[in-house]
């Protein structure tokens, strides 16, 4: 089968993420050649993370992680739970510090959380006492910026995700998918360059999940964001990404960095193509091989 052969070739090229499949359409190839010219947004170099534990001896969550993410890239991070995906995201977001190694954002060492970074978590974590609109405006309040000036932008975003008319609703009056849309608006409202998403659709049902995935791709295209998206769904990882990064646990490290050259805009149909399957198999293989080690 040609799919299997493809995967074989993919695997041997794991260490050099610039290499691509030899067969992709020329349109995609030209698009990705311009990608290498794009500006580097995040550089993570030889990062270790050790958590202190109650017993005294630390847990090594990450060991020698290195990543480079360019502007406008959509990168997904997959791996079994406990392999350090959230930890990587929190380090890039400046929420926690790396034990060793270098983290650069936009060419400068990341010292503290940047207002150029927006975060979305698995649960929407909206403030239950605030209306949808006030939840979206929450970041400005926390940053000590003028809230009123941004009401229009917040309304526009809510409209974009199909929530106009719900501005004054309380979070508990919304379904899980709607709440997650609100939390995405909250991350977008201050127009950060980078969106860090930690299993944002993990708690949703399969249909809502696909719907939101497509919506996210649309937003990403319209607003030209850079996205780092954590998931443990292989299908979701391949469907969304320009690049899939596979991590394995104990200690967390990168075992595969795979460029996905599927045409955009993507629809769910792409999941039934042999190319998609080859990518998904490559990712799955990396996860399970990593596990056996």
């Amino acid at each position: 089968m040609s799919g299997a052969a493809k995967v074989d070739r993919l695997e041997r090229r794991v260490s050099s993420p610039q290499l691509q499949l030899s067969e992709p359409s020329s349109a995609v190839a030209s698009a990705s050649s311009s990608e290498t010219a794009r500006k580097l947004l995040i550089r993570v170099d030889a990062v270790d993370k050790e958590y202190a534990t109650r017993s005294g001896d630390g847990v090594t969550a990450l060991k020698g992680i290195s990543l480079e993410i360019r502007e406008n890239e959509f990168v997904t991070l997959v791996g079994p739970s406990g392999c350090g995906k959230s930890t990587v995201l929190k380090i890039i977001g400046g929420i926690i510090k790396a034990t060793r190694g270098l983290v650069e954002f936009d060419g400068r060492p990341l010292e503290k959380p940047s207002r150029e970074i927006g975060m979305v978590f698995q649960r929407p974590i909206l403030l239950p006492w605030r209306s949808v609109l006030d939840n979206v405006l929450f970041p400005f309040e926390m940053m000590g910026r003028n809230v009123r000036e941004h009401v229009d932008e917040a309304r526009r975003l809510l409209d974009m995700v199909g929530l106009s008319g719900f501005e004054n609703a309380l979070p508990r009056e919304l379904s899980g998918g709607m709440q997650q849309r609100v939390s995405i608006c909250r991350a977008l409202v201050y127009d950060p360059k980078l969106l860090l998403m930690d299993e944002p659709f993990g708690a949703l049902d399969a249909m809502t999940r696909e719907e939101l995935g497509i919506e996210l791709l649309r937003i990403w295209t319209e607003r030209r964001k850079t996205v780092v998206f954590v998931t443990h769904s292989i299908t979701e990882a391949v469907f969304l990404a320009d690049r899939v990064i596979v991590m394995t646990p104990r200690p967390g490290k990168v075992v595969l960095d795979l460029r996905i050259d599927l045409p955009r805009p993507r629809t769910i149909d792409v999941e039934f193509t042999p190319e998609f399957k080859a990518y998904a198999d490559a990712v799955r293989d990396a996860i399970y091989t990593g596990k056996r080690i």
Binding site: G93, I95, S114, I117, F121, M142, M143, G144
Partner: peptide, 23 residues
């Protein structure tokens, strides 16, 4: 307060007093 919510406020680089009053 949920730890993720506190993580979120940290990502805004929010002052502790603000987090106290508003969260």
């Amino acid at each position: 307060v949920e730890t993720e919510l506190l993580d979120l406020t940290r990502s805004f680089d929010a002052a502790r007093l603000k987090v106290f009053w508003k969260v």
